[in-house]
Design a protein around this nucleic acid. Structure first.
Lengths: 205, 205
DNA sequence: TAGATTGTTAATCGATTAACAATC
DNA sequence: TAGATTGTTAATCGATTAACAATC
């Protein structure tokens, strides 16, 4: 059995991947743990240690080939393929997410947008026609979709989450400002701008 | 000199505050570290330890008075007052943030929306008229604003951040998918949905 | 070769948990 | 009083860092 990788290590890999992709865009082909660490405010030892969980991706004396390391990290994170995701909630935030062009080249594609408000159903958001939440489970099952983005009001987040999980969803990116209860096998990630803001004010004189 | 509180403790306080506020909304007036921990998937010992950094807020045998604990946490996090924030970037995401009604009752108020695109300047987003980024520093200095939300394309994020910092900003909530370099005294928090999604795919079979 | 940088080991540091006296 | 729960101490656990042999 492969050893379990600490979750905190996994959580840093997308940050490395993002920085490496940017370095590549800037035309750089090689980097070192030291340089990457400087950019990210992380120690070079930590970067080397994190990467060493998955194999030796670098060369002594020269460092890491950026395109190669990008491929390896994508492979580890399983984003060397495209994941379809459903988006639930077609309000301001859902609409912004539906329009966002940054998912495609990083491994994700919105496969459908759902809302239960009668005045939303049938309307167009970006390239999507908003569908009734009643048809949500159907699409998820049909296409084997594993990931959902949840942009509904806090009052409805738990019930929608329950429906998503029942339909086979394994990961929820929750924009509602509320904690979700979910079974062990479902990963929930949270995005709440106010929580982030409140994490800053403590430090501001 | 007061002892330094670990950053990881501070980062959990907004989560506690959010859950307590919800409990209060549900009409509950008292809770325990055990109950709160169950809701959040955190051990009761950790919650008690975290809170004990700031004082004894509970009573043996009965637990915590929710309204009192809420007030105390707001005080610790300095959100028992209103912080003005500037929003830079009036695209889809900036527009969604400008419309978001969830800032006001949690300690934050958008004081101005800025963009440098000529076709955006002067337009209305929610209750705001988009202003040129040239007038940004003026407002920040005038009103002593300390916090900014950054919703501009990655290519411009660093230069805008530099301008914000020069104008006196101490905290940046960065929605651009790029790491920002900032001096020691500036707190930067990141919101990148793709990073969150990539943190889930590793675990999904 | 000399310089640079990796991958890894051991040491250090810090965070979480368990346990319990105090007490409501 | 008996039961419940806090705040805190000490033990455990896990993550980060320092250091360096290996080697490009």
């Amino acid at each position: 059995m492969p050893p379990t990788i600490p979750d905190i290590v996994i959580s840093r890999l997308p940050i490395y991947l993002r920085a490496l992709t940017r370095l590549a865009q800037e035309g750089q082909t090689v980097t070192s743990s030291h340089e990457l660490g400087l950019r990210l405010g992380i120690s070079s030892a930590q970067i080397r240690k994190d990467l060493s969980h998955f194999g030796g991706f670098g060369k002594q004396g020269t460092g890491y080939q950026i395109p190669y390391l990008i491929e390896q990290l994508k492979h580890v994170l399983k984003v060397n393929r495209e994941w379809e995701v459903v988006l639930v909630g077609a309000g301001d935030l859902g609409s912004a997410l539906a329009h966002y062009r940054g998912f495609a080249n990083r491994g994700f594609r919105i496969a459908g947008v759902f809302d239960n408000a009668p005045n939303k159903i049938g309307t167009q958001v970006g390239e999507f026609t908003v569908e009734s939440t009643e048809r949500m489970a159907e699409l998820i099952r049909q296409r084997g979709i594993k990931i959902a983005m949840l942009a509904v009001p806090a009052e409805h987040a738990q019930e929608v989450a329950d429906a998503l999980i029942a339909a086979g969803i394994h990961g929820i990116l929750n924009y509602a400002p509320i904690n979700l209860n979910a079974p062990e096998h479902v990963r929930v990630q949270y995005i709440d701008p106010v929580v982030q803001l409140q994490r800053m004010t403590y430090y501001i004189p």
